[in-house]
């Protein structure tokens, strides 16, 4: 019965398999709330304590082929795999397990449904996932991809904190697109990345308290940042300097410290320059090279023995200078 139902579904979808191109809807910009042609999950974790579920959906009515890359934030190494999403199909996988191709997965199991392709497992991983719409390995922007990442505690204890954020979606540009492996984020081929990234946060030094939990609480805000200049064909890391400009609740503007990194970075916001320190602040990052960003806050209370986490996208603005994502050439 199950096989028959899947078969019918597959067959229906198969009827559309030959049609792979849909009319593009030009939509310049880097978004978190509308589909795009390049999806970036800046923060992806798979460790003994945390795991990440990646969700991707095809919002189009045609089959959508996708080439995805794991970028290891430690080594800047990349591996890639292929997905094929039927019309409107959502799919998901846990980074620690990947996903195999087996339509006989039982209902309710993590692999149930039409498997989009073979997805390698990643253990002890911190980095990003980048997915690009393609047709037969050639990048073709259709703006049909949306995605979310859910980062979960997997220790099995009482605190099963979960953070979720929307993938950064880069839409097609105003031009005619590209046919090579270098995706130029210049507004013409694809939308540019943003110039500024703004994050509101509770400084973790003084007083650093969760306004709900009280005197024994603390809040740490973590920023994860990925350059928009990515060369998957060479594992060539991009070096970036992040300039931080901070404001406290007295409208006093300070700056720094700056953060330099290569390839990928995840760090806690340093409120040291805030003067005077306040219970709430905002920081605006500008980068020497275009970047995308996501934020995760960790709230805990040692007195109550509780903790929680939440991720969110950052507020962005401006169109950054040209950057590019170079895919590895296929045989």
């Amino acid at each position: 019965m199950r096989a028959k139902r899947i078969a019918l579904t597959t067959a229906l979808l198969g009827a559309f398999a030959v049609c792979t191109l849909a009319a593009s809807v030009a939509s310049a910009g880097v978004d978190h709330d509308r589909p795009g042609s390049i999806l970036i999950f800046p923060k992806v974790v798979s460790s003994a304590t945390r795991d990440t579920t990646i969700r991707i959906s095809n919002t189009g009515n045609m089959t959508n082929q996708v080439r995805c890359f794991y970028l290891d934030g430690d080594t800047c190494g990349t591996i890639d795999f292929d997905l094929s999403l039927t019309k409107q199909q959502p799919t998901q996988w846990d980074v620690s397990n990947g996903r195999t191709v087996n339509l006989l997965d039982s209902f309710g199991s993590s692999g149930a449904g039409l498997d989009p392709g073979l997805i390698p497992a990643q253990g002890d991983f911190e980095g990003s996932v980048v997915c690009v719409e393609v047709v037969d390995d050639v990048p073709v922007a259709q703006n049909k991809l949306k995605g979310e990442a859910i980062i979960r505690d997997v220790t099995g204890g009482d605190d099963r904190n979960t953070s979720a954020y929307n993938a950064v979606a880069i839409t097609s540009g105003t031009g005619s697109g590209t046919s090579d492996n270098e995706l130029v984020l210049d507004g013409d081929e694809y939308a540019q990345c943003d110039t500024v990234h703004r994050v509101d946060f509770i400084p973790d030094d003084s007083p650093g308290l969760d306004p709900v939990l009280g005197e024994t609480s603390s809040v740490v805000t973590n920023v994860t940042v990925l350059p928009c200049d990515l060369d998957f064909s060479r594992r060539a890391p991009t070096s970036v300097v992040l300039n931080a400009t901070l404001w406290n609740e007295f409208e006093v503007q300070t700056s720094g410290p700056d953060t330099s990194f290569s390839c990928w970075a995840s760090f806690s916001i340093d409120p040291a320059s805030l003067n005077p320190a306040t219970t709430f602040a905002t920081v605006e990052y500008s980068a020497s090279s275009p970047v995308v960003m996501v934020v995760e806050s960790f709230h805990s209370d040692t007195g109550l023995g509780v903790s929680g986490s939440a991720a969110r996208n950052v507020h962005t603005g401006g169109a950054a200078s040209t950057s590019s994502i170079t895919l590895s050439a296929t045989p």
């Binding site: 597959t10 398999a17 082929q65 996708v66 339509l103 498997d115 390995d137």
Partner: peptide, 13 residues
């Protein structure tokens, strides 16, 4: 072979 794979992307060269 599981028929759902018929939709997988295959490079043409």
């Amino acid at each position: 072979w599981l028929f759902g794979l018929g939709l997988l992307a295959i490079p043409v060269w």
